[in-house]
Design a protein around this nucleic acid. Sequence first.
RNA 1: GCCCUGGUGGUGGAAUCGGUAGACACGUCGGACUUAAAAUCCGAUGAGGCUAAUAACUUCGUGCCAGUUCAAGUCUGGCCCAGGGCACCA
Length: 821
Amino acid sequence: MLEKEYYPQQIEKKWFDIWEKQNPYKTPNDSDKPKFYALSMLPYPSGKLHMGHVRNYTITDVIARFKRAQGYNVLHPMGWDSFGLPAENAAIQHNANPQKWTLDNIAYMKKQLKMLGLSIDWDREVTTCLPDYYKWTQWLFLQLYKKGLAYKKTAPVNWCEKCATVLANEQVIDGKCWRCDSEVTKKNLSQWFFKITQYSEELLEDLKLLEGWGDNVKTMQQNWIGKSSGAILKFKVKELDGLEIPVYTTRPDTAFGITYLVVAPEYKDIEKLTTAENKASVEEYRANAKKLSEIERLSTERIKTGVPLGTHIINPFTGRVCPIWVADYALVDYGTGAVMAVPYHDERDFDFAKKFNLPMVQVITGENFAEGKCYTEKGTLINSDKFNGLNFEQAKKAITQYAVDNGFGEFKTQYRLRDWLISRQRYWGAPIPIVYCPNCGEVALDEKDLPVLLPTDVDFSVTGKSPIETSPTFRYTTCPKCGGKAVRDMDTMDTFVCSSWYYMRYTDSKNDKECFNRDIINKWLPVDQYVGGIEHAILHLLYSRFFTKALRDCKLLDFDEPFKNLLTQGMVLKDGSKMSKSKGNTVDPDDIYKNFGADTARLFILSDSPPARDFDWTDAGVEGCYKFILRVYRLYSKFQDKINLNPSFDPKTLSKRDDNFLREAHISIKKITNDIEAEFQFNTVISRYREFTNAIYEYIKDENNINYDVLSFALLTLLKLISPVCVFMAEEIYSELGAKTSIHNTPWPKYDENLAKSSMITLIVQVNGKIKDKIEASQGLSKDELEALAKASAKVIEATKDKTIVKTIVVVDKLVNIVVK
RNA sequence: GCCCUGGUGGUGGAAUCGGUAGACACGUCGGACUUAAAAUCCGAUGAGGCUAAUAACUUCGUGCCAGUUCAAGUCUGGCCCAGGGCACCA
């Protein structure tokens, strides 16, 4: 029997061409089968695929193929998150056209994806930078606008000098720009926001529904939303009749310990609160605060600074007259922008009071209390008049209630989440469909006038302003309300707006009448399995959840959460460290295709680590997988003429040897099916491929003792089990065996529970928990029989002589433990 | 500081319910085939002790210290370390 060699490059090219013609994974919206929506996070077309993409899309593809084989109508689409700064920067640097740059990249990467053998319905592809998509992004903006969820306001916003644009809070990482890593400053600008804070409570509460999400992602979102409960307390200003300063606190129980008050440098009433003699120093302090970068200002290590305003408040609980200070440790955009200071029980206040010699009053005591040290634990009240002796919970409630009853307070729940700033002062994005009319003011465009097309007559060489502003034609338009002259909003939308709804568009991507169809989207969504990187734990995933809830409230769809199950895959490393262009340790998928084939890449990227963990790419590992593929192929080519596509045999009449071999097949189906279904443990799935393959090689060693029907069954089973991973090789072998259909259209094999079980077991015999013997025994023996068997063991007799048997534990079909003294 | 995730051989990792720790690989070593090499195939491989050596036997071993149990990688309590997230959020 001659063995043929396998040449993956040629074989993969052959099937690539066939699949290219057929689009074999075209998915109907109408089907009797149950639906399954498998989704990968859509790529940004930066130029070439990287290994992170390969890992992400291979995982999703294997899931999609597995579910398809199990009889689901599987939606597995792909698209391009194609607006964004890199295209614009390429335009600025090489004088390229951003659209051409982007579409060229898409064409290249699309080919790379197809070469990877992904089972995608390419007819549903979406490209967010094309008018047939961004028309609907603009349309959705208008729906949010009508619903009051999109609004414009002037506020201090995050500004990245290098990118020359504003950023959302979620895009500022440690005070730096998420994209270019340069320091972010604050600027006061009039900008568009989405009112995500309206959904703070629901976004937090519904995390509980997301059982298919990892705790890490849920906790990150929970922390980001940052719910706290406390009270607003209002303080009268002694010197200014009628003026009150409200503060937010989570510790109303410490109200008797207030000795001063702090307002943020940007606090709205600060000028009124400053006395004439303090004016100069306060002005100077505020000017300095403005100059500080966010990083400097928010550093917890920084020594506290501040100056007194000269005015005072009266603590309504104690009657104490307390000075008001300005200090930048109070933040203008959290709570009320003012803080009540209780130095004895808050570390920041404590540091500040120490530095400026402000008085401290102890009002809480409890375990670990130490005189003269800041005590922040929740203890028992003292020095608090009628509230003395109460614990934290009681005091919090009683003191707030007292403030409510006396008209100077209220219960308050506070969130850290801020509204989503979506305007960008850049060209390559979806224009905001709003115009400004001298007569009518801010006017939303009519839906029939969409899309607002990006102008092409722009000059990318300008600095200091958005290139879009250089268009001579874009700015001026007519007011849809009065027909008079009007100017457009010159900003574009954050690309995260585009990516907050792309998975909805896939359901009906060619629809030019609607953004998506309500019936169709209700059928497909929520996404059954979403796969992507952890870096979107807050940004994209939170925004998409918000979009879903907002569009539900706009009556466009009828579900509450977009992604039922989420798999966040780990990073791809090279020899233990992060792949990066600067380190020069990247691996180019094209090289892997060329040298080993896409099947090897797919097999390897799934083989060594579970999907959620980081994966270490090594050259030795790739070669190991390549060899395995060749080894599998050899097996089939060796028996090509003997393999029966419809093997038939009676399992009851098989020889012991054949029966044991058949069991390997059933065990493999069981284990692989379970490992995919439970947690997508592809690394153990692949281990089982190898074990099964080894078992087949073991079986065929004795060439004169082969039952070819059983062997055919085993080989066909292995082929199907391996087909979601090694898609080209499986198809090639199947067709070489003479099959007329694609292996990818055949059903997933079923295992027989009885055939997966052995009639024999290995009984573990322990004495005092230490293994003394292993005995082959038939399965299903009674406890007494097992105990007798164990006690008959020579090794057990040896180990128990001169000792008393205290008791014997028998676990059926597994183990006997004899306890002796 | 708070929260999440993880810690198992030289390496990646495996181990439904507490029941044979180290599956499957990579690497290393040895052997077969070959003029030779590659490829392929076969075997060994947690650390130590005993032994002339092998087999047999035996001790230790899943970050650390306790505990529960006939039995702990797995359960409980307390720590340590690494990675990630949040953080002058009152």
